[in-house]
Amino acid sequence: MTMTLVRYNPFRDLDILQRQMNRLFDESFLSDTKENGIPAAEISETEDAIHLKLELPGIAKEDLDIQVTKNAVSVSGERKEETKTETNGVTRSEFRYGKFSRVIPLPVHVQNNNVTAQYKDGILTLTLPKSEEEKNKVVKVQVG
């Protein structure tokens, strides 16, 4: 009978533990984001306005609360989803409820009393006109 000598490496156990913790954190973070329904956002800027799109599938426009200050947008709401399927006489029902809230800081001041909103196919689109002082921030100077 021969024995094989194996060298013990204590750092190997720490490495395994760290990978397991990272995976647990990543899975927990991703599932929390999906379950809480934190909406994905896209922001773009033109000369006259800020354009903000939020992805809000499965939420009725009546369940949205949108508030705009001169330098931020707050969107909150409640998702109420129910799906039922029936296969071979077995009914499967799933409910998904959850509130969400997201505050998005704006890169410039806007005219919060002149905002337009559209909601179609689960996409909320806000057009936030820039305040006059922001529009006139860059002034062309003539050299004499």
Score class of each variant (00 low, 15 high):
residue 83 T to K: 15
residue 143 V to S: 14
residue 56 L to Q: 01
residue 120 K to I: 09
residue 15 D to F: 14
residue 90 V to W: 12
residue 16 I to H: 07
residue 140 K to G: 00
residue 38 I to F: 11
residue 41 A to G: 02
residue 90 V to Q: 14
residue 31 S to L: 04
residue 134 E to A: 13
residue 80 K to S: 12
residue 102 R to F: 01
residue 22 N to G: 01
residue 128 L to Y: 08
residue 62 E to T: 04
residue 7 R to G: 00
residue 130 K to G: 00
residue 59 I to M: 02
residue 5 L to Q: 10
residue 86 E to M: 15
residue 61 K to S: 14
residue 99 K to C: 11
residue 16 I to W: 05
residue 3 M to W: 01
residue 115 V to Q: 09
residue 89 G to C: 11
residue 23 R to Y: 05
residue 21 M to I: 08
residue 140 K to D: 06
residue 124 L to W: 00
residue 142 Q to R: 14
residue 23 R to A: 11
residue 84 K to Y: 06
residue 110 V to C: 04
residue 54 L to I: 09
residue 113 N to T: 15
residue 78 E to Q: 13
residue 14 L to I: 03
residue 83 T to C: 13
residue 57 P to L: 11
residue 124 L to E: 01
residue 84 K to R: 15
residue 28 S to A: 07
residue 106 L to K: 05
residue 112 N to V: 05
residue 25 F to I: 07
residue 79 R to K: 13
residue 63 D to H: 03
residue 96 R to L: 04
residue 113 N to K: 14
residue 77 G to K: 01
residue 46 T to H: 07
residue 82 E to P: 14
residue 33 T to V: 10
residue 110 V to P: 00
residue 78 E to W: 08
residue 17 L to R: 07
residue 94 E to I: 15
residue 131 S to A: 11
residue 35 E to N: 11
residue 114 N to I: 06
residue 81 E to N: 15
residue 36 N to S: 12
residue 42 E to H: 10
residue 90 V to A: 09
residue 102 R to D: 00
residue 16 I to V: 10
residue 32 D to T: 08
residue 44 S to N: 10
residue 119 Y to D: 04
residue 119 Y to A: 02
residue 122 G to D: 01
residue 63 D to F: 00
residue 35 E to G: 04
residue 87 T to V: 15
residue 110 V to L: 10
residue 65 D to A: 01
residue 1 M to F: 11
residue 5 L to R: 14
residue 52 L to M: 08
residue 73 V to H: 02
residue 114 N to P: 00
residue 100 F to Q: 03
residue 59 I to D: 03
residue 134 E to F: 04
residue 36 N to K: 12
residue 51 H to C: 09
residue 104 I to T: 13
residue 47 E to R: 05
residue 47 E to T: 03
residue 105 P to F: 01
residue 144 G to N: 10
residue 92 R to C: 03
residue 30 L to D: 00
residue 6 V to W: 02
residue 116 T to G: 09
residue 7 R to P: 00
residue 88 N to T: 01
residue 117 A to V: 06
residue 61 K to A: 12
residue 12 R to H: 09
residue 124 L to Y: 02
residue 83 T to S: 15
residue 16 I to Q: 10
residue 126 L to V: 05
residue 69 T to F: 06
residue 74 S to A: 13
residue 92 R to E: 03
residue 72 A to Q: 11
residue 122 G to S: 05
residue 12 R to Q: 10
residue 97 Y to V: 09
residue 112 N to H: 13
residue 139 V to G: 10
residue 60 A to T: 06
residue 143 V to A: 14
residue 35 E to Y: 09
residue 29 F to P: 00
residue 40 A to N: 11
residue 41 A to I: 04
residue 5 L to Y: 06
residue 109 H to E: 14
residue 74 S to L: 12
